[in-house]
Design a protein around this nucleic acid. Structure first.
Lengths: 129, 129
DNA sequence: CGGTATCCTGCTGGATACTG
DNA sequence: CAGTATCCAGCAGGATACCG
């Protein structure tokens, strides 16, 4: 098989359709403003409800509560309640959840670059003015 | 500086706040159901409006039109109109847009793994039934 | 602390028809 | 082909108050 044939397979319509589908699936699972920040927060060592809440600017108790429930159903996190002390609850990420690690790291990296770019643009604008 | 100190800096609240912020920025820019699929489609060689439209299952002309406009404003893509033949338009991705490459690849990869996992789960369920 | 309950708004997105 | 125009629904998400 020559390189042209390999490229033809790699970029075949069927393959492209699969990739678009996979991309849309992922967007469906982690869509919205909060799921990735929540996962990131829990993986960063925040396990209590208020702790997670405080670590994510802008989120409300209502949204956090809803998202945690949905993510528990989807096996992305586990909710652990202390039987002796019902007001003590911990959220931990599952192995499955950790498979988002690369996506989150790439997005953090992109966001940092983006800020940098914006700042440099503002600097140029000030010098020009 | 010992490794403990390094770790303290790496996981300091300030640093965590920066990362959450970067993550939220990125989610803001590429949020919604369509922007990443559109970028992916264009980078995969689809440049004409109908071509992009056909390549993304579920998208409507209205959403594609809106998203393309917004992405052009944000310098993620460029719109090139043929002066001699106004019904011929091409969309191309900018260098900046390509910086989403890693995120998209990671998400495609995750989506494929996810499908596989779902299929295997269904298989187990059938065997058990 | 760890959440629910209400109420409300706006935006995302869908359906369909139409235009140059 | 490359879009606009209208109209509309639903739900993501926000504000606030309250509960055990």
């Amino acid at each position: 098989m020559n390189s042209k044939a390999i490229k033809a397979i790699l970029s075949s319509p069927r393959n492209q359709a699969d990739e678009i589908q996979a991309l849309q699936d992922t967007i469906y699972v982690i869509g919205g403003k909060w799921k990735l920040p929540i996962i990131n927060s829990i993986c960063n060592g925040n396990h209590r409800f208020r702790e997670i809440e405080r670590s994510i600017p802008g989120i409300t108790t209502r949204m956090l509560s809803r998202e945690l429930k949905e993510m528990e159903l989807n096996k992305l996190i586990r909710r652990i309640e202390d039987p002796d002390f019902p007001t003590k609850v911990e959220y931990v990420s599952t192995e499955y959840c950790k498979s988002f690690g690369n996506i989150i790291l790439e997005m953090i990296s992109w966001g940092k670059q983006h800020r940098k770019k914006i700042r440099e643009q503002e600097k140029r604008d000030r010098l020009q003015a």
